[in-house]
Write a protein that binds this DNA or RNA. Structure first.
Lengths: 195, 195, 195, 195
DNA sequence: AATGAATGAGCCTTCATTCAT
DNA sequence: AATGAATGAAGGCTCATTCAT
């Protein structure tokens, strides 16, 4: 019995289903049937709402990024300097983000982005925003050139720790991941003082 | 015109073709037809030599790792301490390894490894070997605990820089990648003195 | 033009098509394409309804057995003793069952049953039921041991006549087949009196 | 190192391999590769000696029939009347013939004969010869019409018992099979006396 | 005599997508 | 709004067969 206002609910359910399917399978080659099944619908319904598989996957990635963006905004609100950077780091490894499911989906989208211009654009926008965020907090603490390098280092470390945890069994170890990045930050801050 | 002793040549050609196809497509979902075509054969021939697609892809990954392993061994021969570590870093970003094709294949295999136990095993063996290598060189320079952490940081940075370059257009920038990791190493070495 | 409620119709059409194809070819190695074509569909449709070729073939055999079972039940209703046995014999050689198409399919399934546990189970269930039926009617007419032997003899004769008719051209000769088995029965009945 | 006079040995080895493969698989759809492997050769070699798969299979069936024919001739030599018939029956269920392997191959060839005219011809020739043999022995014992019917009954029983044993697990029970056919014969003989 | 090399043809199966209901 | 029905297209894989050596 079709109800009014079902559209956003359906879309959301399908997106969640897609992320769950991708996370579980560890790659984007999940079937529309599988996704639709998890979302309590049929493949035809998924097409009805998203047009094509590619669009659904794109929406799923956008959803993941949006969630992360929201978490980041909330976490850094009112903070500046080193505290702000620490907050950014912590969000990336928060229980909500640093889950096997999200890690796997993230990685899968990264791979797919090499082929899909729209996905690549999406990921780049996020990367740029993260970079801005880091730079904004780092600039008062060190010279511009070093700030840029530090931002790049932090981002690379975060990505590297994500990919490395994708291969490990069991729950990812957020604490040591955070410690590693914080250490890097501390060295940079300490090092710049002595430079 | 069938000739004798073709097996090693064919196998090599097919492996190269697979890497090339994967690198170009940015993912493992290439067809046997495509691979075989690039390798100058037919899909049936590829099956003849490798049994199944999975085996061919596995062999391709093993080949990439073997090449990297050989390069590493040659690079570190006779070196120790910081020089040894620098050599390891440089090899990872050498023109032969840090190519779009190899970067993309690497990433694709990383993703697939989440599903394929045999691939995961392969990648883990390599990761462990790299870790041993780094630890061996770091141990004389710092306390054991910090050496472990440093090795993990270097490895994460390398992986992170690989994945980040997968999203960039054009030729990857090896120089700045190396600089970033070397910086990290230098900080760790300097920092340990002051700790 | 897809209509609703097609499933039972399609399934039936495909099963009939399978039996027809198998009967014509004289073996189970018919293609899904052939079956689907006869059934007015595509191979994909056949998979949609049956999952896999094996399942379709299994369903076809089950259908043949179900039809035979129904015919048998109707034929023996209310009969007992020799009349019941005669009815059983006649059903096996009735125009509906003793057709080249069905004979060939039967034989093909018999062969396949050596490899397929599920098919073997199916055929065994039928064989056991036929045996029970025969025994039930024979027991009042002769000692238990001889009843068992007679049942086995009748079953073997029926199977033997089926297989022998598979090799003959033209329409199978039901009348003489029935006469042969009835003769055997008469001898057993008469013979037991003199034993 | 190719030797002179290898041809008959190779052919025989390949035929044995074919029978073994067919018997084990329970059907004719064995691969040339499998057969050749068992026979200690390559598929190309099998083609070299037999031309095509069909020819090899045909030769295998002919070999089985020839062996059976030889056994029969030896068994009936010097015998006549009921003893001759008993001998024929016993040969059919002798340890050499009534083996799972041979039973399965026999059945598989029976099925294939529906499609292959040459195989059908082969089997028919054998059937006719068996019939002649039985008739020759039966004629002195009963009227022509009944002799014909008895011969057909015996043949049907034998075939039926073969096919029924194909479905059973474990070693076939020759003793009870022989008893069943002998019983039938005895009934016919006894019955004709009282007719 | 014997085989490694190679392939064309074919089959089962999957899946995104469309369409009528 | 939602779905059962249906399919075209494509892919992995097998295998009998051929050919040069």
């Amino acid at each position: 019995m079709p109800k009014i206002g079902m559209e956003p609910l359906r879309r959301r359910a399908l997106i969640d289903a897609a992320i769950s399917a991708i996370g579980e399978r560890g790659s984007l080659d999940v079937t529309m049937s599988d996704i639709a099944g998890r979302g309590g619908g049929t493949p035809a319904l998924a097409h009805h709402y998203f047009g094509a598989k590619e669009d659904l996957l794109f929406s799923a990635m956008r959803h993941i990024l949006a969630e992360l963006g929201r978490d980041l905004r909330e976490a850094v609100a009112g903070l500046s300097g080193a505290a702000r950077i620490s907050a950014i780091i912590e969000v990336n490894f928060s229980p909500k983000q640093f889950r096997p499911e999200i890690i796997a989906a993230w990685l899968a989208f990264y791979v797919e982005a090499q082929r899909s211009p729209s996905l690549r654009r999406l990921l780049r926008i996020y990367a740029r925003r993260l970079n801005s965020n880091l730079l904004f907090a780092l600039r008062p603490l060190m010279p511009a050139a070093e700030a840029a390098r530090t931002a790049e280092g932090i981002a690379a470390l975060v990505d590297g720790l994500y990919i490395r945890h994708a291969l490990k069994d069991g729950a990812p170890d957020a604490a040591s991941a955070i410690a590693l990045v914080e250490d890097y930050l501390a060295l940079r801050l300490g090092g710049s003082r002595h430079a």
